[in-house]
């Protein structure tokens, strides 16, 4: 399988990364090189093999559903590029 320029642009939009025509063209070549490299995975018979989702045979630990931290909104927004009165500020989303 290989990708065309339109697919690269569609994927870049899905990933929310603005790309120029030039960048899209150069990413196309590189992505196709990597997908080509991955072609060899089709040689392997994976019939009946479960996908590996965790390398450790341990049940996911669950914490008690209690508040352990918080009450410092000013620190939470402390690194925001734009904030106002402990809120994150974004461009208008709803008209």
């Amino acid at each position: 399988m290989s990708v065309d320029i339109a697919t690269v642009k569609r994927v870049a939009h899905l990933a929310r990364i603005a790309v120029t025509e030039e960048e899209a063209a150069s990413f196309q070549g590189e992505i196709n090189a990597i997908l080509g490299f991955a072609e060899q995975l089709n040689e392997v018979d994976v019939e009946g093999v479960e996908p590996l989702t965790s390398v450790v045979a341990q049940t996911m630990k669950k914490r008690e559903d209690v508040v352990t931290d918080g009450f410092y909104a000013d620190r939470v927004v402390g690194n925001a590029p734009v904030s106002d009165d402990d809120f994150f500020v974004v461009p208008k989303v709803v008209e």
Binding site: H13, R16, I17, A18, V77, N79, A80, P81, V82, F88, V90, P91, K92, V93
Partner: peptide, 19 residues
């Protein structure tokens, strides 16, 4: 995504700000 920390580059709307 330019909202909670780090760099933000403005755009016409929120989607273009992300991009």
């Amino acid at each position: 995504d330019g909202v909670r920390y780090g760099l933000r580059v403005p755009g016409e709307d929120i989607a273009s700000m992300y991009e």
